[in-house]
């Protein structure tokens, strides 16, 4: 009856703790430490780590860089959106805006690229499907990550941060070729 009554012992903090609780606390703490260690370990041995490279930018500045890439490496068009095939290892750009991912990228399998992502207006969610990599795209920030597409195929980029009434129409494309 003591959970809602004052503790039976005035000096309750001196009452020894039972063995069972101590063992459980030790086990739980050990597990917490293992989970903690997994994160740095993955930074060393794992391959999926988010870079922290990011720059403040503006929609105008970022948009200009995207256009520059598009004008240099455009290889076609899909549904009115340019398809761009930038050189391996280069800086590639994709922007989110109401309600489009722009442009479509064509990448080579197992090659590394520096992908820049930003938003022109509201926040968006860059959700690469079906691989299932999800990033938050925030206006004013140019987020840079090194990606190495390791499976050839056609990928959808779904927007998974709510961005208004056309949110569900915001689908982009990335092609990965052998």
């Amino acid at each position: 009856m003591t959970s809602f009554l004052p503790p039976a012992e005035r000096i309750w903090w001196k009452v020894p703790v039972g063995r069972q609780e101590l063992i459980w606390i030790a086990i739980a703490l050990t597990w917490c430490i293992i989970m903690f260690l997994m994160m740095p370990i993955w930074h060393v041995y794992g391959k999926q780590n988010l870079s922290t490279e990011a720059y403040q930018t503006t929609p105008a500045k970022f948009g200009a860089k995207v256009e520059e890439m598009v004008s240099q490496y455009k290889v076609g068009e899909e549904a009115g959106v340019p398809i761009v095939e930038p050189p391996v290892g280069s800086d590639v750009y994709m922007l989110g805006r109401l309600w489009q991912w722009y442009p479509v990228l064509k990448l080579k399998k197992d090659q590394e690229y520096r992908l820049h992502l930003s938003s022109m207006d509201w926040q968006h969610g860059w959700s690469l499907q079906p691989d299932n990599i999800n990033l938050q795209i925030v206006p004013g920030y140019d987020m840079v990550l090194k990606i190495t597409p390791d499976k050839a195929g056609e990928y959808g980029v779904v927007c998974n941060e709510y961005c208004g009434i056309g949110h569900h129409t915001m689908v982009g494309k990335i092609y990965v070729e052998e």
Partner: peptide, 23 residues
Amino acid sequence: TLGVSRRHWDMDFAGALMAFEYP
């Protein structure tokens, strides 16, 4: 786990310029 988005009106992406299909 299969990537279905939260806060999302349409899994079929009706009206989207480009297509993507969930399994």
